[in-house]
Design a protein around this nucleic acid. Structure first.
Lengths: 113, 113
DNA sequence: GTGATCGTCAACCATTTGGTTGAATATGCG
DNA sequence: CGCATATTCAACCAAATGGTTGACGATCAC
């Protein structure tokens, strides 16, 4: 994780529209038009958001025919998550405590909004 | 974690100066002036950065006398980290795979820059 | 009290961000 | 070919961001 990668990743995650998009892509790969459908926003705006997510490596885009498919890239999120944990003060690697904490959190999580 | 909290947290983390500040506070609690010292930037600018970090809950500030002490609030980072992990596709809670991955990452990590 | 130190406030500035619209570029379909 | 669909590009705009400077309010030290 370079500084610039962290810049892009966190900036990308700071926008609720983009987080919602990630949440959608967690379910399934989607075309740009389909990503845009639930939002009250132009297709061009969504296209820009997808570009930002792709630049941060959070999604990958692959054009097949005239449709551009978007899929989540979990590794990028995982890497950023790791970076954050280094601040969470699991001193060396206190995974037992972390495991308990994570299990508790996940049992009552809501992905977004 | 509300949507707005995530906005503030990730926006705060998106700036390299603010991440460097967090990194410094990982070592020790510090006064505003001391936080500012290594940066080539006005005290007012650093004061703003600290305000943003505090608004996101990433640090706490306590005024004692004329000096305002800043300390890391690891819980906020931990919570955001948890949010990110939900996208990392450890399907239910694949902690074994995660543990291996984390151990590997930490063995070669650099906190910032 | 006087003066230095700690930190914030207010006004300002340049740049970035998140959105719009309309035109343009592919690609698929009949 | 001719038209509809999928996506991006370019120009533009308002608002937010990250920085500056100078004045200001507290607090401590003599």
């Amino acid at each position: 994780m370079t500084t610039q990668t962290l810049d892009l990743t966190f900036a990308a995650l700071a926008d609720p529209t983009r987080r919602a998009i990630l949440s959608m892509l967690l379910e399934d790969d989607m075309a740009v038009t389909d990503v845009a459908e639930p939002f009250d926003m132009s297709l061009a705006a969504i296209s820009k958001h997808l570009g930002i997510l792709a630049a941060a490596g959070l999604i990958a885009q692959e054009k097949r025919g005239r449709v551009k498919w978007c899929k989540l890239e979990p590794d990028a999120l995982r890497a950023a998550s790791i970076w954050m944990q280094s601040f969470g003060q699991f001193e060396a690697v206190n995974l037992d405590a972390f495991e308990a904490f994570l299990a508790h959190e996940l049992s009552s999580k809501s992905i977004d909004d």
